[in-house]
C-alpha cells in the first residue's frame, strides 16, 4: 500500500505503476461535466492554486448542510469518467494536475496527456459511497454551487486515506485496455470464434 499526500511531485507520480494500491490524503477538488467544460473554455484562475500538484475527483456527491451552515459529504462514490475524455488532457496540463480519480477509465487522448504532463488516473471503488464520504474529513469550500448545483459544483475537500488503484500510469499504460484485450480473447475462445 502506497501512501500519498497532496501536493504530489511529478517524480512521485512517475514512480506509480499499474495496479498499485494507494491511500490518498490531503486537499483535492471534485469536478464533473459542467466543471470540465468551464475549465477548458474559460480557464478560471481561482482554480490554479487549488489544482496545482493536486487531484481532481469525478464525483457528484450527496451533501448535507448542517444547521451552522457547514457542509458534510453523506455519500460520495466516483462517477463514470469517460464523459470528460474531450477535456481531461487539456485540464491536466493547463492546471498542473497530478491525478484524476474516477471510475471506468479513460481513453487514448487522456492517456497521452497524463504521460506528457506527468499525471495518473486513479480508480476509486464504484458504489463505495459511504466509505468514501467517511474518508472526506472536511469540506473546505465550494465554488459554482449556485450555477452548477450540488452534484456538479467544485467541492474543495480534505480526504484522509482515500483508497485507490492506479489504472492508467504516467508512461501511457492503461489497465483498462489490457483487460479489454485479454477478456476479448477469452470470450472468443469460449465461443469457438478463434
Amino acid at each position: 500500500m502506497i501512501e500519498l499526500e497532496t501536493p504530489i511531485s511529478e517524480k512521485q507520480i512517475r514512480e506509480l505503476k499499474l495496479g498499485d494500491s494507494v491511500l490518498l490524503s490531503g486537499t483535492i477538488v471534485t469536478a464533473r461535466d459542467q466543471a470540465h467544460k468551464l475549465m477548458v473554455e474559460e480557464k478560471p484562475d481561482f482554480l490554479r492554486p487549488l489544482l496545482k500538484e493536486s487531484v481532481i475527483y469525478h464525483c457528484g456527491p450527496v451533501v448535507k448542510q448542517e444547521s451552522d451552515g457547514s457542509w458534510r459529504f453523506v455519500s460520495a462514490g466516483p462517477t463514470t469518467s469517460i464523459r470528460e475524455e474531450p477535456y481531461q488532457a487539456d485540464v491536466v496540463c493547463e492546471y498542473n494536475v497530478r491525478g484524476v480519480i474516477g471510475k471506468g477509465g479513460m481513453g487514448d487522448h487522456t492517456a497521452e496527456g497524463l504521460q506528457r504532463c506527468g499525471a495518473v488516473y486513479f480508480h476509486a471503488v464504484g458504489g463505495a459511497g459511504t466509505l468514501i464520504a467517511n474518508a472526506v474529513v472536511n469540506v473546505l469550500d465550494v465554488h459554482y454551487l449556485e450555477e452548477f448545483g450540488t452534484p456538479e459544483a467544485f467541492w474543495v475537500i480534505r480526504v484522509q486515506d482515500f483508497p485507490l488503484v492506479v489504472t492508467m500510469d504516467a508512461a501511457g499504460n492503461s489497465l483498462h485496455k489490457r483487460i479489454r484485450e485479454a477478456s476479448t480473447a477469452a470470450a472468443r475462445t469460449l465461443m469457438g470464434l478463434g
Binding site: 462514490g77 471503488v125 463505495a128 459511504t130
Partner: peptide, 16 residues
C-alpha cells in the same frame, strides 16, 4: 467495509 459502514451509519451504500 463500505457495506458495513453504510449499515452502521444508516447512509446510502452508493450515492446512486
Amino acid at each position: 467495509e463500505n457495506v458495513r459502514q453504510a449499515r452502521e451509519n444508516s447512509t446510502p451504500i452508493c450515492q446512486d
